Computed example of a mutant assay.
Amino acid sequence: MKHVNFGPEAAGTDAPALLVLSHLRWDFVFQRPQHLMTRAARSRRVYYIEEPVYGAPSDQLAVRRDASGVTVITPQLQQGRSADEGRASTARLLASWVQAEHLHVYDLWVYTPMELPVTAGLTPRVTIYDCMDELANFKGAPPELRAREAALFRRADVVFTGGYRLYEAKRDQHPNVHCFPSSVDTAHFAQARQALPDPADQEPLPRPRLGFYGVIDERFDIALLGELARRRPAWHFVLLGPVVKIDPASLPRGENLHYLGMKRYTELPAYLAHWDVALLPFARNAATEFISPTKTPEYLAAGVPVVSTGIRDVVRPYGERDLVRIADGVDAFEAACAAALDERGTPAGEARRQRADAFLATLSWDRTWAEMSALIEQAAERNEVALVGVADD
């Protein structure tokens, strides 16, 4: 039986608080969790619970309020604890904190099945699993991740997936699965179409510029990038983002390869404004089979031509609608980049941009959050009816 608490919040004007369990740091790359939770924070209290950091003199929760309105909670644990010990300690800390904060009614939103044990002392109104990636396919994924996800499916009241391919893989594992692919804040990225100043670290670089931003990890096709840079010394490749889980020394180097590091979300339009082509050079491997890159609609909103490898959630819908050029293999990818460069300033290029704008008009993170919220409330209603039925028995 599901445990559902009803308290003064349930009957009041405030929506129940939302506890979010995530494997991604709040201040890391601004992506799906940040887009959704900043919107959630407009109408409810949002507590974003990160994975622990170790080295504190005693176990405690570090709590801070982000400018977005989201409260970020970071467990700070003593060094030397095993992962299971750390989760058990976090579970005790979190349960005590929820009680101290008088959170009588709240929902639980989970991104990371591995951390499910930290919810042991919680009794949410609704449990949501936002499955944004197939984490079990990532480099270094723990072997017990799939079992933890199966347990989460049994507990979840509603499941969201971050893309179509992921939806196909998960829809038979739960009776209430809904697909919510990556959306976009069009107005933010459309700033790139204005005369924004070229950022200081990019301004000296020659044109044409072919750019990428995001996490540079095992999903990134290093060999493709290196061969493109070798073949086209006049093209300059701008790479923005942190390098994680791979050795930075493995990245290709050259006079036309420029690694400018991680940038804030607010800075991205200024970089995009001075790119000639935006790239999605993802490798085709287990870690990329289920991804739905948030940057696809962001690139298009900026008005920059896009070339991608054949990632399923880019092919459908962007490739099928001829909004993004799809090319696998270095020969085809090079040809697609050349075609995108040639199309700049032509009627065909403008027509492609107009088609992209028409499609983007159907997308927004605000709409995504509103639709998700409605499904959460439907799940809450079902739980309440079920609880009343149990009481009547």
Rank of each mutant, 00 (worst) to 15 (best):
G7M: 02
P8I: 12
E9I: 08
D14P: 00
P16T: 00
D27V: 08
F30L: 04
F30C: 06
A41H: 04
R42I: 01
S43L: 00
V46W: 05
Y47N: 03
P52G: 09
P57A: 08
Q60L: 01
L61T: 06
T71K: 06
L77I: 01
S82W: 04
E85A: 09
R92D: 15
A95H: 03
W97Q: 04
L103G: 00
V105T: 05
Y106E: 03
M114C: 08
A120P: 00
G121V: 06
R125E: 03
T127C: 02
C131I: 09
M132W: 05
M132D: 14
D133P: 10
D133Q: 08
E134M: 08
A136P: 01
N137P: 06
N137Y: 12
G140F: 13
P142I: 15
E144P: 00
A147T: 14
F153S: 01
A156W: 04
V159K: 00
A169F: 11
R171E: 13
Q173H: 03
N176A: 14
S183E: 12
T186E: 05
A187D: 08
R193N: 13
Q194F: 15
D198F: 02
L205A: 09
R207V: 02
P208I: 01
L210H: 02
F212I: 00
R230Y: 03
R231L: 05
R232W: 02
V238C: 00
G241R: 12
N256C: 11
M262I: 01
R264C: 00
Y265T: 00
Y265M: 03
T266V: 03
E267K: 02
E267N: 03
L268S: 00
A278D: 04
L279S: 07
L279N: 13
F282H: 15
R284M: 12
P293F: 09
K295L: 13
E298M: 03
L300H: 11
A301E: 09
G303A: 06
P305H: 14
V307Q: 02
G310V: 07
D313C: 04
V314L: 10
V315C: 10
V315I: 07
Y318T: 09
V324Y: 13
V324L: 09
V330Y: 10
D331M: 02
G345E: 09
G349I: 04
E350Q: 12
E350C: 11
A351L: 12
R352P: 10
R355P: 07
R355E: 13
F359N: 13
A361L: 08
W369N: 02
E371G: 12
S373Q: 07
L375F: 09
I376W: 11
A386V: 01
L387S: 09
L387C: 12
